[in-house]
Design a protein around this nucleic acid. Structure first.
Length: 415
DNA sequence: TCTGGGGTCCTAGGACCC
DNA sequence: TCTGGGGTCCTAGGACCC
């Protein structure tokens, strides 16, 4: 039996949520009606566009573009700082509403999800009418608009939902693919990004239709096994389930930060690394994992990127152990280049409910207790309530990097 | 480009082993 | 040694997504 899959996507999510909040709190201006963006703080070198209004789109404002460049073209642009806690709440409210329509929902990112509508046809025989009803309820009750794409699989539902925005319902069933999807530029296909697009152009493929009908031997020659996947996608072939059974286990936890000024002093770098390790380890312990692999990455002021990793003999969740490892990795990696951004990431998880005693290290119950105590204090009184003295008057934050909220997981790259 | 931060997956090349 | 072939693991980097 063929399935009915919805893809629900909040239009310009961050901006819509901020706009809706402001209207609900007495503002007379709807940010969605004027050239506006959600953007980071330029003074601390976080100045990029995170979301844009449709009037801003008329100035060709791109997500990820620098605010400086945007202001050159559009001097009257309104720039609003991001508020992630608001976005979490809006996202959660959206999911709660959608749960009234199907128990099978896959949260794909903070502003996107898939909903399996297959068995709902008895209650709502017309899925398109149901999608309109859902869309309109979201608009009325939550104050923001969504696009809903409908098809038999997640890939087509997602591409269909993107056809025309905002506040629209689209179908993209397999029989509609030649007419609705094949004329689109090839970069509109899920999985085709900045690097692959020019390569496809080079072999004469500009539209999804051309990719769908291209010679497979040629695709395999230029793109290896990915050539086959791309061609299947271009033909609308994809059959993964809407994965609603809880979130898939996390594979890694990482935090990184762009520093407000270039760093060329090792002691400064160590402080930033510690602040990142603090966040990473708190999240690690919260998830009840221990990690075996630690990796450190550096982005230079020239945007050159490098990374280095090492493995523990036994997995750990101890801030101090991971900090020591990260510093060693940094020493081995750093060639005295000016540092713009630093990152710390841990992976290769196992449960933390037992202690793997290494042959050569002594298990230290005190270290464990220290971490647990600090976690508890921070949970109760805030992340900045306890911190290491080296941060006093250092100008660096004792804890850096964001902590995604519990009830929302990042997307996975497999649909 | 005055270019963020959080993820996942894939691949090439080298080391090592049989 | 004028040096086979294949498997596995590890590492760094790159591609993609939101």
């Amino acid at each position: 039996m063929s399935r009915i899959i919805f893809h629900i996507d909040v239009n310009s999510a961050y901006l819509s949520w901020e706009a809706a909040w402001r209207l609900q709190h007495g503002s007379t201006v709807d940010l969605r009606d004027i050239p506006s963006v959600i953007g980071g703080d330029e003074a601390s070198r976080h100045g990029i566009v995170l979301a844009k209004s449709i009037p801003a789109k008329a100035y060709n404002v791109q997500t990820g573009e620098s605010l400086y460049a945007v202001r050159q073209r559009c001097p009257n642009i309104v720039i609003i700082p991001p508020r992630y806690d608001l976005y979490m709440q809006c996202s959660a409210a959206l999911i709660r509403l959608l749960e009234e329509y199907s128990p099978i929902i896959q949260i794909f990112s903070i502003d996107e999800c898939f909903l399996d509508f297959t068995c709902m046809e008895r209650i709502w025989p017309d899925p398109v009418a149901a999608a309109h009803m859902i869309k309109n309820r979201i608009k009325q009750e939550l104050g923001f608009t969504v696009n809903i794409g409908i098809s038999n699989n997640k890939l087509l539902a997602k591409i269909g939902g993107d056809l025309k925005k905002p506040d629209m319902v689209h179908t993209l069933f397999p029989e509609e693919v030649p007419e609705k999807m094949w004329p689109l530029p090839v970069e509109d296909l899920y999985g085709i990004g900045r690097a692959t697009t020019p390569k496809l152009h080079k072999v004469g493929i500009y539209t999804i239709g051309q990719l769908a009908k291209a010679d497979l031997t040629m695709l395999l020659y230029y793109f290896k096994s990915y050539g086959k996947v791309m061609q299947e996608y271009a033909n609308g072939i994809e059959n993964s389930d809407v994965a609603s059974g809880g979130q898939p286990p996390m594979k890694g936890i990482g935090n990184s930060t762009t520093i407000s000024h270039d760093v060329d002093d090792k002691r400064d770098a160590y402080k930033i690394i510690l602040s990142l390790v603090e966040t990473v380890c708190m999240r690690l312990r919260q998830a009840k994992y221990c990690a075996r692999l630690v990796s450190v990455s550096i982005t230079s002021n020239e945007f050159l990127h490098c990374s280095h990793q090492c493995k523990f003999a036994a997995a750990t969740d101890c801030t101090n152990d991971i900090y020591q490892a990260a510093c060693m990795l940094f020493d081995q990696l750093w060639q005295r280049q000016k540092i713009r951004k630093l990152g710390v990431r841990v992976s290769e998880f196992c449960g933390n409910d037992f202690v793997q005693l290494s042959l050569f290290e002594k298990y230290d119950e005190k270290k464990k207790q220290l971490d647990t105590t600090i976690d508890n204090i921070r949970m109760k009184y805030g992340t900045r309530s306890v911190f290491r003295s080296c941060f006093l008057h250092s100008g660096y934050s004792p804890v850096s990097g964001g902590v995604p909220a519990e009830d929302y997981t990042m997307m996975t790259s497999i649909l």
